[in-house]
């Protein structure tokens, strides 16, 4: 059961990593990077490390994604200013 979940999630994560690198739209790339962190947190839980899973869910998939979005917003705003 654990191996099945890890294999399926691993395939999804690798595809998401390729998407995050190759998609032209920056917001789509950021969403794909968020998917990687989100599933990585389930994998940490399967590897019996709940502390790491909670940290990854809170920091890796939450705050990092939001900081990327704020960066995009600042850059867009710079575009519209001049």
């Amino acid at each position: 059961m654990i191996s099945i979940i890890i294999i399926v999630f691993g395939i999804i994560m690798i595809i998401a990593a390729f998407l995050a690198i190759h998609l032209k739209n920056l917001l789509s790339a950021i969403i794909s990077a968020g998917v990687i962190s989100l599933l990585a947190s389930v994998i940490y839980l399967l590897l019996a490390a709940p502390d790491v899973a909670m940290t990854e869910a809170a920091i890796g998939s939450g705050l990092t994604t939001i900081i990327f979005i704020f960066t995009l917003k600042k850059i867009k705003k710079g575009d519209l200013d001049d």
Partner: peptide, 12 residues
């Protein structure tokens, strides 16, 4: 972990 996961993903 599930509680934290749900709250954070909502904000995301």
């Amino acid at each position: 972990v599930a509680i934290v996961y749900g709250l954070i993903s909502f904000v995301g």
